[in-house]
Design a protein around this nucleic acid. Sequence first.
RNA 1: GGCGGGGUAGCUCAGUUGGUUAGAGCAACGGCUUCAUAAGCCGUGUGUCGGCGGUUCAAGUCCGCCCCCCGCUACCA
Length: 694
Amino acid sequence: MTSPRKILVTAALPYANGPIHIGHLVEYIQTDIWVRFQKLMGNRCIFIWADDTHGTAIMISAKKAGVSEEEFIARMNEEHQRDFGTFQIAYDNYGSTNSSENRELCGRIWSALRQAGLIVEKDVSQLYDTVAGTFLADRFVKGNCPKCNAPDQYGDNCDKCGSTYTPADLKNPYSTLTKTTPEIRSAKHLFVELEKLHPFLEQWTQSGEHLQTEVANYLKGHFLGEPLRDWDVSRPAPYFGFEISDSPGNYWYVWFDAPIGYMASLEQWCQKTGEKFNDWWPQRIDAESAGVEIHHFIGKDITYFHTLFWPGMLHAAKFKLPTRVHIHGFLTVGGEKMSKSKGTFVKAETYAKHLDVSALRYYFASKLGPRLDDLDLNPGEFIDKVNSDLVGKVVNIASRCTKFVQASGLSANYPEDGGLFTAGVAAGKEIATAYEGCDYARAMRLIMELAASANVYIDGKEPWKIAKDPARAQEVQDACTVGLNLFRQIAVYLSPVLPKLAEQAGALLNEPIAHWKQSQHPLVGTKVAPFSHMMKRLELKDFEAMIEESKESGVGFQPAQAEGTGDRGQGTDSGDALTAEPLVTDLISIDDFTKVDLRVARVINAEEVPEAKKLLKLTLGLGGDVKRQVFAGIKAAYKPADLVGRLVIVVANLQPRQMKFGLSEGMVTACGPGGEEVFLLSLDEGAKPGMRVH
RNA sequence: GGCGGGGUAGCUCAGUUGGUUAGAGCAACGGCUUCAUAAGCCGUGUGUCGGCGGUUCAAGUCCGCCCCCCGCUACCA
């Protein structure tokens, strides 16, 4: 027997700006299963995390809700924990990044970074909303892209042309908070010179021990191949967060204090339990002797915070580094990204109202591997898999055996079972290895094989037949003793995924399931409680009802990223388009308008640009011999053949632009959000190429 | 274009260090059973293992080239 491992586990901190949804649950369930598995194995494992509560978005949401930030995040914390309870996520402490413990730890790590000479000051020009009295984070500024002039682009990059820039570069910027034009203000920001840690990060990320290989390669290719940029870790007031002790008026950026929140939560847990912080998150020099492991579970979207910044901070502050960062992919529903308008953005609360929590836990487990693949929640597969595996195979074992041993209980000695139980013990080793390596899909496959052979066994014994012959009572009891022991063994193996089933199995056989070891020895001579249903079959209509409800309620107060698919109903048109692209408030004169030379043109030729993802190459005729070559980003929406011959409206005096694929001499006018939803302007009968639009 | 991940039965995927006629689950079809939540059991697959070439006694499994899909990233309207 090896001595128990000491393992500290975290999941990414949910942002206190909205409710928990099924996408979050992939990670929390993944983490919970791993933690439950470790505890079941007898290891000392603690799961500590918290709400992530700071930043501009929280300020704005609180303002909208008409309450203080503190009150807002307190409500969220309560709501989040309620959802975790519903989904049987069992953690040891759930804190908040807005805690005194966190403030203190931020200060400690900050001083260490200062001492290490990693902090520099630089002036940063940022847009300031004079009405709201706040600097605007990138996502709260929109305007025209400085490169392609596409309207209503966020402050960090253009989703039309993909170019990146700073909010101050935007043309015609406006604040999404007040719709007013922000002004540029310069403020002092503090930066971490990450490049100084480059050699360390290179070594840590590439050692092969801490990260999945895909992740290590990704970092190598995207960040570590060139000098690391300084990381801006401060925000000027007003900002909901912690003021930096040695830099009044500046606050730590939310991504600085969030991971430190892991430590703060640990500190709270230590206070609660009397444990010592240093035993669980030691200074790096002590790490070996303490023998503790630190595991972070996160989604691939926040990879670089956890694999570059965070290790960098810990290294500089001389804390123990994560043993491993486990990164998972995103959840899709029916093969598509979750979407509010399609109702696939399902809140945890809504799911639980319609469907069984155990079903989701099992389904996710059956789909989760050790890699970063996205995971699809396919309605049909979900229903089939859960019904046939859990109800049809696993629970059925208990269901078909129980009543024959209701009176007698289990046999006093474990009967000959053809080696089934022993085979189950052997499989347990593989199952444990799979859990340990986060390959739950494999673990579930192995367990279902056991369930299948248990059913075959019972089928062969036919206890319902021999029960009719009183002389064969012992045979009946023995067959069911085997069946129920196989069921119990499976319940132990499944217990990290299905704690409720394990509880029910424990109650059925009068011995609570608490340790993996219980799967290694059969249970004999005990009473058997009356059988009661352990799990209900799922029905597609419940899934559909859940989707329907999710359509109606949306998902809380995040700024809607309207995904309107148009043509909804008759009567009044929805305001989605205006929400997505608000009216421009800057007025222009007629002269401004006439500067734009809009012309009718005929598409003479249209062809694919094979190397381009979005572009079509158009040859436009303006009448006579006047032709223009224009590249238009409409590839996803139009086929070249359908365009030839039709009339379009073109900006004829746009500065020509040299593109990778050739010179673009104008711009074809169109509307819509982009991608497949692009709609060219068309003309009524009678319009001729060359005519000017007035 | 770069990086990463894939391409195996209708669908979702396993295939460990290359080794006998390539597997599982689900779905489908046929039969048996009716203890069990219309549950269970048995049987049924002529799949070019994306393509081509190579190494080898032997390749889904190694090497090279190519094609396609996904993600990130770059260029770009």
